[in-house]
Design a protein around this nucleic acid. Structure first.
Lengths: 217, 217
DNA sequence: CAAGATTCCGAACAGCCGTTCTAATCAACC
DNA sequence: GGTTGATTAGAACGGCTGTTCGGAATCTTG
């Protein structure tokens, strides 16, 4: 891949973002050609295929104005800050995180899902590689984590005693509990008197809790 | 304007919003026809003209997928936040809110401070005029609101029974409690058995709780 | 029930859109 | 200077899209 191509591709990505911002709708192939100074829609089409292969955009084949910019593409353009520019304010200390699934606080029931929902999360309670889980059940209620809450998880294989962690206890079964090492085994402790602690010889810690968000209806 | 027409028009407006949310791009006339159960694009076209005359949508004549929902249209659908969040078109679905002070969940101790701290708050759990309060005390612990939590408050003078509200009970004294109207007076109910309810002849509701954010250390 | 308005269908048309194919142009390299 | 690969232009296609028009179906009104 040559240097020239790289620039053109970035320029096209910018043009898509610009068209989106201006018209509220993605531009057509020919509109992109106008924006970047290309005469043929086929040339744009060529670059669009490359952009899609790089997972910077997504398209529905044959459908007009179906280009979407992926989170990766948005990150590459660095327009996660665009809101501030438009509104002329200080940067928003937030980042877009993906809700990777629901997790059962009650028992090890559910694992990751295939979803693409994302939410903006304040920077002060997340890191760039954090992800979100939606809580099901009330086994962590005494830790002030309720059913329906979103929890911010920071990926980590290590945890301190007493940390609330996402622990994989079986194949495809993860749960959110406080973790304690006792003797040669591990205790996963719910924060609800109605639920007993669970003991395992070995658990795999996937991440630690760094934040909680709740929407009240 | 007949009743039938009104319903169909609202349904079409919903279909546009739904298409926007699902595909990130406005639907075509024929896609709308499918969504609302019409067989002819001309029928949809007729309603679109009416919607545009009502300033609920805007279009670029002849341009495909150029329908935009105006603020009026969004207000009519009651989805001021949702569409933009989910389709991910806006760079970050967050807004900067000001932490106006600490509020004592334990008792009516503290009022507003002069501070300028701001935090980014996810759009899905806030409105543009919301503000933040930092919780002190544990009187709302059974509502899963802990000491140190940030609560998102939507300014409002009205509240439903059982809502968690910011209530001004004296000059310069506000508190966060559940509110109940009983007979001719008002009960402010902590969510902690260690604290008794408080009764007032009159309280001024300043806002209702719409979100909770917690940073775990 | 009759008349009129509203709403919808079906068809058609012109233009737009994504896509494909071939050929021309360009840059880098041996 | 020739070869190779990437980039673009140009043309063409089939399908999609917005729009228009006439007429049928449905509802409203008196």
């Amino acid at each position: 891949m040559t240097r020239h191509d790289q620039d053109r591709k970035t320029r096209i990505l910018q043009a898509i973002a610009e068209g989106l911002r201006r018209n509220g709708t993605p531009p057509t192939v020919r509109e992109i050609a106008d924006l970047v100074g290309l005469a043929a829609p086929s040339a744009v089409h060529h670059h669009l295929e490359a952009l899609e292969a790089d997972r910077l955009i997504e398209r529905e084949s044959g459908l007009s104005r179906s280009i979407r910019i992926t989170p990766s593409g948005r990150a590459l353009l660095g327009l996660d800050d665009e809101v501030e520019v438009v509104r002329g304010r200080t940067p928003l200390a937030a980042r877009e995180l993906t809700v990777v699934g629901q997790i059962a606080a009650g028992g090890p029931i559910e694992a990751y899902e295939e979803r693409s929902e994302t939410l903006a999360v304040p920077e002060f309670m997340s890191t760039a590689d954090s992800y979100l889980l939606k809580i099901r059940g009330d086994s962590m209620i005494d830790a002030q984590i309720a059913d329906g809450d979103y929890v911010v998880i920071k990926p980590s294989q290590v945890a301190k005693n007493g940390d609330i962690v996402v622990a994989q206890v079986e194949e495809n079964a993860v749960t959110l509990k406080r973790i304690y090492r006792e003797g040669g085994r591990v205790r996963l402790q719910p924060a609800n008197e109605a639920y007993p602690p669970m003991f395992y010889d070995e658990v795999r810690v996937q991440g630690v809790l760094v934040g909680v968000m709740r929407r009240v209806h």
